[in-house]
Amino acid sequence: MPERVIARRRRVGQRIRTAREMANLTQERLAELVDVDRRTIVNVELGYTSPRLDTLLMIADAVRTPLSELVREGAGE
């Protein structure tokens, strides 16, 4: 996997973590809302794995953040 893809996956994971924390959700609670294992949330936030699109959509809904904000690319990214 190219390093640029791994780096982008980490940035998306960090945005998910930030949004989760802003929504006052634990990893456990987010996992329950999205119907996945807590370890899945951990791996996504750390950038170890990429979530499936349906999981990503449910995460965005749970943290009340537009999907576009979670996956956006900005200047210098």
Rank of each mutant, 00 (worst) to 15 (best):
T18S: 13
N43I: 12
V44G: 04
I59W: 01
E73T: 11
I6P: 04
Q14I: 11
I59F: 01
S50V: 10
E28F: 10
R29W: 05
V71Y: 00
E45F: 01
L46F: 13
V36C: 02
L57D: 07
A62R: 00
M1H: 04
R9W: 01
S50T: 11
V71I: 06
Q27H: 04
N24Y: 13
T18N: 12
R15H: 05
M58K: 15
E77A: 11
D35A: 15
G74H: 10
L57C: 10
R38C: 09
E69M: 10
L33P: 00
L53C: 07
L70P: 00
L70Y: 08
R10F: 06
T26Y: 02
Q14Y: 12
L46C: 15
G13V: 06
I59R: 04
V12K: 03
E3Q: 14
E28I: 12
E77W: 10
P2Q: 09
N43F: 13
E21V: 11
R15S: 06
T40E: 08
D54A: 10
L25K: 00
V42Y: 13
G76S: 02
T65I: 08
D54G: 01
T65V: 11
A7C: 07
Y48R: 15
I41Y: 01
R10P: 03
A31L: 05
E32W: 04
R20M: 04
R8P: 06
E32R: 07
R4F: 12
T55K: 08
Q27A: 04
V63T: 02
R72I: 04
R17A: 13
R10C: 07
N24I: 11
L67P: 00
R64K: 14
R9V: 01
T40L: 08
E21G: 06
Y48F: 12
R64T: 13
L30R: 02
T55L: 06
T55C: 07
L67I: 09
P2D: 09
V5F: 08
R20N: 02
G13P: 01
I41N: 08
G47S: 05
G76P: 00
R17K: 11
L70F: 07
S50A: 09
N43D: 13
R15W: 05
I6G: 08
Y48T: 14
V36W: 01
V63W: 05
G74R: 11
A75F: 14
M58R: 15
N24P: 06
V71W: 00
E69D: 12
R10L: 09
L57A: 09
R20Q: 00
A23Q: 06
V36Y: 03
V5E: 15
D61T: 13
E69K: 10
V63I: 05
R38Q: 13
A60L: 01
N24A: 14
R9L: 08
L70G: 02
E21F: 08
E73G: 07
G13A: 06
L46Q: 15
R39W: 13
V34Q: 09
D54H: 08
L33E: 06
Q14R: 15
E73W: 06
T55I: 10
L53T: 11
A23W: 08
R52F: 05
L70W: 04
M58C: 15
P66G: 06
L53P: 02
